[in-house]
Simulated scan of single mutants.
Amino acid sequence: MVDKALGTGGRKSDRDLKIRLKTAKGRTTSSTKWLQRQLNDPYVARARSEGYRSRAAFKIKEIDEKQKLFKKGMRVVDLGAAPGGWSQVAAKAVGSTAEHPLIVGIDYLEMDPIPGVILLQKDFTEDDAPDMLFKALGGHKADVVMSDMAWPTTGHRPTDHLRIVHLIEIAADFAIQVLNPGGAFVAKVFQGGTEHELLHMLKRHFRTTMHVKPPSSRSESAEAYLVAKGFKGAEPARAAEDDSDA
C-alpha cells in the first residue's frame, strides 16, 4: 500500500518542487524569470554554501578540471574579475596568499577584497590598463590569462557579436604580451565562437585552441569558452609573421 501511494501521486516531482514566482508590481516578466531561475539553480545554491561569490566560479573550476590550467605557484590575471568568483578559484588552485599574492584581477566595478588577490578598479579597455596589470604582477610574466568579460548586450546580435569579439581581441593581445611560454588563455565567447581572423591569430601563438562549454554553463545560453594552451612565446611568433611578409 505504501509503494502504491508513493507511485500514484504521494510524492511530488522535481518539477512540482521548483519555486515559482508571480510577476510583482514594478518587476518585469524577464526579471521575474531571471529571479526564478536563480532561485532554482543548484549552482547558485552551491556557490553560497561553498563561499563563492557567483555561480560562474564553477565554470572555471570545471574548465580547470578538464584542461589542467592551474598549478601551485602560477601567476594568473583575471580580466573582468567582478564579482570575483574566478579569482577565488584561481587563488585557491595556485596557493596565492595575502603575503605572496599571485593573482591580479581587474574590473571597472568595485569589488570587496579577496585574500591573495590584487584587485584593480579599472576599465580594461583603457590604454593604460595593460601596463597597470603588468606592474601589479611585479614585472613577472603570467602563466594564465583568463577573461569572463562581456559587454552589456544591445539586443542587436551582429552589434553584440562584434563588441564581444573586440573584447576578446584586446584580451588576447594582452595575453600574448604577458604570458610565459607554455601559458594559457581562457575567454568567454558567444554566438557560436570567435571570428576566423582571431582564431587564426591564436593558433599562430598557441599549440592548441578549442571551444568548451562547461556543465555549469546554462544549456540555453549561447556562451562558450575559448581555451588556448601552450603559448609559443611572443617573439618567435612575431618573427614568423615578419618572415611571411618578406
Rank of each mutant, 00 (worst) to 15 (best):
V2D: 09
V2E: 10
K4W: 11
A5N: 08
T8S: 05
T8W: 03
G9I: 06
G10V: 03
R11T: 13
S13T: 11
R15S: 14
D16K: 06
D16R: 00
D16E: 12
I19N: 02
I19V: 11
R20E: 13
L21V: 07
K25T: 06
K25A: 11
G26C: 06
R27S: 10
R27I: 10
T29S: 13
K33M: 15
W34F: 08
Q38H: 07
Q38N: 08
L39F: 07
N40E: 00
N40C: 05
P42I: 05
P42D: 12
Y43P: 05
V44P: 11
R46M: 15
A47D: 11
S49T: 12
S49R: 14
E50P: 02
G51T: 03
G51P: 07
R53W: 02
F58V: 10
K59N: 06
E62I: 10
K66R: 15
K68I: 12
L69Q: 14
K71C: 05
K71I: 00
V77H: 00
L79E: 02
L79N: 09
A81C: 13
P83Y: 09
P83W: 04
P83T: 08
G84P: 08
G84N: 08
G85Q: 02
V89N: 08
A90D: 10
A91D: 10
A91C: 03
K92C: 07
A93F: 01
A93I: 04
A93W: 01
A93S: 05
S96W: 00
T97A: 00
A98R: 03
H100V: 02
P101S: 00
P101T: 01
L102D: 04
V104G: 13
P115F: 01
V117T: 05
Q121H: 02
K122Q: 15
F124P: 13
D127R: 10
A129K: 03
M132Y: 00
L133V: 09
G138I: 04
H140M: 09
K141Y: 08
K141V: 07
A142V: 10
V144M: 11
V145C: 12
M146G: 10
D148S: 14
D148L: 14
M149N: 12
T154K: 07
T154F: 13
R157K: 14
P158Q: 15
H161C: 12
L162V: 14
L162R: 15
R163S: 08
R163P: 02
I164M: 15
V165S: 13
V165Y: 14
A172D: 09
D173G: 06
Q177Y: 10
L179G: 00
N180A: 13
N180V: 07
N180H: 01
A187S: 15
A187V: 01
K188W: 09
V189D: 12
G192Q: 11
T194Y: 06
E195T: 07
H196Y: 02
L198I: 06
L198R: 05
L198S: 03
M201W: 09
L202P: 00
R207F: 14
T208Q: 06
M210I: 04
M210D: 04
S216A: 15
S217P: 06
S219T: 13
S219K: 10
S219H: 05
A224R: 02
Y225E: 05
V227K: 07
A228V: 04
K229W: 01
E235M: 13
P236C: 05
A240Y: 04
A240F: 03
D242N: 04
A246H: 06
A246S: 15
